[in-house]
Design a protein around this nucleic acid. Structure first.
Lengths: 223, 223
DNA sequence: ATAATTGTCGAACGAACGTTCGACTGATTC
DNA sequence: GAATCAGTCGAACGTTCGTTCGACAATTAT
């Protein structure tokens, strides 16, 4: 297994090398739009040579998705260990998600965007991890409700809205223009917990706006 | 063939018919994964017959996206007319978006998911509408800030997070299981404005949680 | 030294792709 | 009643697709 083979390439392991290039091609052209020939060209491995490492195009996507998703999930479970406070757990989840997302944007785009491309057993396995990830988030939200911290919102809608907020990032985030992972995470934590509307502060600083704010609160309470 | 495709009526109804089926096929298999033959089979129009109405596969996607997006944008501008209060404008935007999304889930999935499939002039035109839509949302958010209603959040991040929350719906919403458009809109309006955390109410009902909530507020203020 | 294994690739397979062409229909126009 | 027209489609075009095969070099095991 661990053969110390000396080949022409400096890369010790070729499968990861292929997976990296495949992920890039998939992210740029989409799974169906990308051809094995594109991946061959990008990775420098011949068309036939690729099939020594992977048995199909589907398997290629499967490996990318499963590696990526498992990494996100494992890091999350690790960082969640020992954290009891639901709000802190939520903060950890969002930070972990965005941190991984912006550190591996290519793989995460493939994971987010090529959600329906896999079929059969491959699909089922990725869906299984997705379910575990979702259950953790749902558990956190229900933990908040149990402690009286969360409003009586549909938990499923709340959690999936949060996922939407986070996963949509791949469509707009540009490094250098948009905030980095840590700042973005704090912003989204704040938005998810307290929304975009000012709390007490603005009432004190700008008394003229009190009426409007009170009206808003009334509307909110009624809904 | 057993459809009402007799020549009794001027066949000006046929392009919309094709577009409907094309949208369904694109939504199920993705733009690249769908073939013109799939659309031919689904719509009942022969392969060559399709090309009497459309000049390319790209044009098919372009028409679906531009019709859908223009409809959403026009309805929004119409409903926004005469509404001055930024919060009410935001409510209108979210309601309009979700209402259209759940009423035309197939087209909206194609619009959301096949964002990068178009090229050249087609792509530019759709992007142009997208920009106008984004600018409206940004304007609303900055209107809120101008009135002291919104926290000092990155406006771009706030607006794109909202879009993420709304557009991600196509990945999870199941009619019959999940809330309808109006209820969903109210939930998301509430989440975006005030977050998931309880406001005054829980402080009165559950005094034991006050300490925790205060700590959260402090953390929030510091970030 | 020889056999077996691992890694690599050019060439080719059949299938599917988007698109085009010419022929045909039935109705409308002159 | 001949010409024009919109509408429709079977058949085929050239290209690209995912995948396979056989050959061959290099390395490791016997």
């Amino acid at each position: 297994m661990r053969t110390h083979s000396r080949v022409s390439r400096p890369s010790q392991q070729k499968l990861p090398h292929i997976l990296r290039h495949a992920a890039r091609v998939f992210s740029e052209k989409g799974y169906e739009g990308a051809s094995i020939r594109d991946i061959s060209r990008s990775s420098g491995v011949s068309l036939a040579g690729l099939y020594y490492y992977i048995e199909s195009k589907q398997k290629l996507l499967y490996l990318i998705q499963i590696y990526t998703f498992k990494a996100v999930l494992e890091r999350l479970e690790e960082r969640l260990r020992g954290v009891a406070d639901p709000v802190e757990r939520l903060r950890v989840l969002i930070r972990n998600h965005l941190d991984y997302f912006l550190r591996h944007p290519i793989e995460m785009k493939v994971l987010s965007h090529e959600d329906e491309a896999l079929e059969g057993e491959y699909r089922k396995e990725v869906l299984d991890i997705k379910r575990r990830y979702y259950d953790i988030a749902l558990g956190i939200f229900e933990g908040m409700r149990r402690e009286g911290l969360a409003r009586r919102l549909n938990p499923r809608v709340a959690v999936l809205s949060l996922f939407g907020m986070m996963n949509w990032i791949y469509t707009w985030h540009r490094p250098g223009v948009d905030p980095r992972a840590d700042a973005l995470a704090e912003t989204m934590v704040g938005m998810f917990l307290h929304g975009v509307v000012d709390g007490q502060k603005s009432l004190r600083v700008k008394p003229a706006r009190v009426v409007r704010s009170r009206r808003l609160a009334a509307v909110r309470a009624a809904s």
